[in-house]
Amino acid sequence: MNLKSPFLPQKSVIRSVVPMTHDNYLFEFRDSVGHFASCKPGQFVELWVPGVGEAPISVCSGSIDGNLQLLIRKVGRVTSALFDMQEGDWVGLRGPYGQGFPVEKYKGKDVCMVAGGLGVAPMRSLWQYILDHREDYGNLILIYGMRHSIDLLFRAEFKQLLRRHDIDVFIAAEEIVGPDLPPMSVQLGRVTDMVRLSAVDAGYEVAICGPPVMYKYVVQELEKKSVPDSRIWLSLERHMKCGIGKCGHCFIGGEFTCKEGPVFQLSELRMLPEVIECEGGAH
């Protein structure tokens, strides 16, 4: 039997580290063999720091061209160890895994993207992909909410996005803290307020990614706007430890989030228990 272990990662060298905020860095990894060239928006990889462990991280750029970008927040053991590493050091990467956002299904449609907090990282892969293929899509709305305005990520990119006329960008923070650099127009409020303000309607395909508590409230707002469940796409947060539908940690209802997801159509999820409701969190 000549099978290779699916847990063997690809050795990948850190090409650059760009701090975005004090605890959010954008890491770029060299993908010399083109292992990740087929990455789709919304997919994820398993990142291994030898001696520490693995963590599932969302792909955060629309196309992978020799380099793979991952936005990483320093929250746990693996990410903390990564923050101690520098250019030239290597990590292990496995993937890409999962089904991303259905960009083919969105073709010819209006698309609304809703990101909360760190959910902006996977959402970036989607808006970059759609803007790269702009003529294939209709009206675009991008909503990005965070707790404190100082946590705003991809500031330079959002400045560019705000200047474009072919995408409506809404940025909201629950509290304005620290420098609000003009011309960033950060509004006081939550993502749900921005959904209400936006022109999203029943004709839009809506992609959502954010902390688990956010989904329930965003979905309620979308219901008020008559967006049908079949047009709401949620990227679910689960701890995908193996990424290949084996370890069981991300199993919900009848499906593995890492294999069938992490992006699911809300109409598929309505029948499943324990999808959106959760306990705890910093709220």
Partner: peptide
């Protein structure tokens, strides 16, 4: 349990 201490 997932990041942010959310537990499903």
């Amino acid at each position: 349990q997932v990041n942010g201490d959310f537990n499903f």
